[in-house]
Design a protein around this nucleic acid. Structure first.
Lengths: 231, 231
DNA sequence: CCAGCTTGTCACGAATCTGCAACACAGTAC
DNA sequence: GTACTGTGTTGCAGATTCGTGACAAGCTGG
């Protein structure tokens, strides 16, 4: 199961880094932003599972960011936890009414933060939306881990699935065996590079009967590439 | 929309009445209890939409009441907010880990309490009217906690029912054993992951005689999935 | 207190996957 | 053509992962 990704939006670097450190230790993947602008940038290319927003931010108040997130259909379901130094009631209420799913008052301990993050994540609904990627009829569903062509299902083993998932989310680009090992197997395993070839072969074989093996292309001397362009 | 009903469990009468007054003014229907015993009595004949539990109660700690509520499948979904005078972190964490959906630290203002109640109610799943879910003849009734196929009833134990309920409300998606434990058992229990397998087996066995065991699918290396698509 | 049901663990075998090595084949440089 | 490098293919043994029956402990309602 993939690690949950948390986006931290906090302008004070020491605090941000401390939080990031704690979350990483707890097994989260962490993305950092120091203001709303960079937060939006981060949201544009990754899709975190939860956002931690500081109340006070240089360009726009965290509350406004939260409101904006909750207003946008794309991010409406994204859980938000607000960090606030102000303990005054008025703000607490505003935070919750702004749509934050929870808030934590500074100073807080890592344990408390973690407990709240887990509580919020636990109740957050898994994206009901589709997670489909398609290339000319070849459909990969990241939610159900299924690859289909029309009504039929492509039979893939776990590694083949992960491989195809990686390829379909990173098409049109050559990856060396080394890079593939890194991205698909995860950084710290020692596996022969040639093993990639074997799995490529297995993937191709599975796709063959549907005519999609041509998408998995060899770039001699470099590595492999996934592309719908048969060149 | 009918008025939401809130059960207040608090032994100190002045506080209890103040809260009750504030909630009634805000349009809630209020039920009061001064200890766990009377809380249980109240729960037996009404079904509130939310419970406010004081941390310190004469007969049993509020935390234990919360735990008990979250353990019982009847009341598992019932949102709980804890009231606590202790602001120490350890307790906060214990409160959340005990399964409370939120907590409020005394002293609090009616406005803050209201905001939190609304926040919790907002995210508590609105039972979408009809309580029947069906997949190709397999009918699950969330109201009566029964599963039927035509005129016949599928014999399920409590855990199997909860499991099937979760699956049928979250179909077409792979869940790791970890996630299933979290969502079906409730976050804070330590149970072996392989126990899932055993319950899957029991669930399949129960569905087998009706031919629906094929809906419970293994995704090797990842977890399990419920899907009406057999392919 | 007992009987019956439910639940969490374990152990074992079955099914499947994985990585490697070995060999076959293709492309390239000379 | 020959030598050499890079890739395709295959079989297999070891490692994982799952399915399954058995069992003890806990709980519930007599």
């Amino acid at each position: 199961m993939p690690a949950k990704q948390v986006l931290i939006v906090e302008d004070e670097r020491p605090i941000r880094e401390m939080i990031a450190f704690g979350l990483k230790r707890a097994g989260f993947e962490v993305r950092e932003a120091e203001d709303c602008r960079s937060a939006r940038a981060a949201l544009a290319d990754t899709r975190p599972d939860l956002v931690l927003v500081d109340w006070m931010l240089p360009d726009m108040s965290g509350l406004e960011l939260t409101r904006a997130l909750k207003r946008d259909r794309e991010t409406r379901e994204l859980p938000v936890i607000m960090l606030t130094a102000r303990a005054e009631e008025g703000d607490k209420v505003a935070g919750l009414e702004g749509g934050a799913d929870d808030y934590v008052t500074k100073p807080f301990s890592p344990r408390e933060l973690l407990a709240r993050i887990n509580a919020v994540l636990r109740r957050s609904t898994p994206t009901g939306g589709d997670e489909l990627i398609e290339f000319e009829g070849l459909v990969l569903d990241q939610g159900s881990h299924r690859v289909t062509v029309g009504p039929r299902t492509v039979g893939l083993g776990p590694t083949e699935y992960r491989m195809l998932e990686f390829f379909m989310t990173h098409p049109e680009r050559v990856y060396t065996r080394d890079q593939l090992l890194d991205r698909i197997w995860g950084g710290n395993v020692y596996v022969e590079e040639r093993t990639i070839d074997v799995h490529i072969r297995r993937l191709r074989k599975a796709l063959e009967e549907f005519g999609y093996d041509r998408f998995v292309q060899t770039v001699r001397g470099s590595g492999y590439r996934f592309s719908a362009r048969t060149v």
